[in-house]
């Protein structure tokens, strides 16, 4: 096998060669004369219409959407878990819902490093709760911006994922989110869009849920 240094040299040689070939073709290109890229103008929707679209899209994708108030979150999570014969939930650290949930459920905080705790997360955690950054009506999408408190695997590995969505942070489309929130200026480690539970149609075009990620996505939509 080649050594690391040899491969670095090879990579930089390949880089020069590829770039030289490409540059030879477009060196004189005039970028000021590019044609105008027209975007499609979607009809404007009221907040109520957007909420409906958001909910319908998510429901069509097999997610469960529950309209609720901020105060009822803990109660609803406990109720939904007990319907599934569960009484434990994994949540992020520094969660404002910790105390309310602890009163009714066995709560575990994601206060560990994944590396040493993979078997625990994969085999013992049945449900998790996370918050979200914002959401998108046009596609029924929930935007998660994982961080130290709510790691990436919190919304991925447990079979049931509860996610709290604030109806006030609903945007019409992905493009609108970029215009308003300007992510381009400072991207986090990871952003993930979730639009339903994990699924696949890889066997004879038959939809099956719970391929590798959560089998169930329960959306707690704070709407009052």
């Amino acid at each position: 096998m080649s050594t690391k240094t040899e491969l670095q040299q090879l990579s930089s040689k390949s880089k020069s060669s590829i770039l030289a070939k490409l540059k030879a073709q477009v060196s004189g290109a005039d970028y000021s004369k590019l044609p105008v890229e027209m975007a499609y103008e979607y009809p404007e929707l009221s907040h109520q219409q957007q909420l409906e679209l958001f909910t319908n899209n998510l429901t069509a994708n097999h997610a469960q959407v529950i309209n609720t108030s901020k105060e009822s979150i803990e109660r609803i999570v406990a109720e939904e878990l007990s319907k599934r014969n569960l009484n434990k939930i994994l949540i992020g650290t520094n969660s404002e819902y910790k105390d309310g949930l602890s009163a009714q459920l066995e709560v575990q905080e994601y206060d560990f490093d994944l590396q040493q705790n993979k078997p625990y997360l994969f085999n013992e955690v049945a449900a998790s709760l996370s918050t979200s950054l914002c959401s998108i009506a046009q596609t029924g999408t929930i935007v998660l911006w994982p961080d130290e408190n709510e790691p990436r695997t919190l919304s991925l590995v447990p079979p049931v994922h509860f996610v709290i969505v604030d109806a006030q942070k609903l945007y019409p489309s992905f493009s609108d989110v970029l215009v308003k929130q300007k992510w381009q200026q400072n991207m986090p480690t990871n952003i993930v869009f979730i639009s339903g539970p994990s699924k696949t149609a890889d066997i004879q075009q038959t939809l099956a849920y719970g391929a590798h990620g959560p089998k169930e996505l329960v959306v707690l939509l704070i709407n009052v």
Binding site: N61, Y110, F112, D113, L114, Q115, T141, D147, E148, P151, R152, T153, M187, P188, T189, N190, I191, V192, F193, I194, S195, G196, P197, S198, K199, G213
Partner: peptide, 17 residues
Amino acid sequence: TYFNMISSPRKKGEKDG
């Protein structure tokens, strides 16, 4: 179902990735 945007490896303090 998922659209995943990755911009860096695990940063200090992050617990997975």
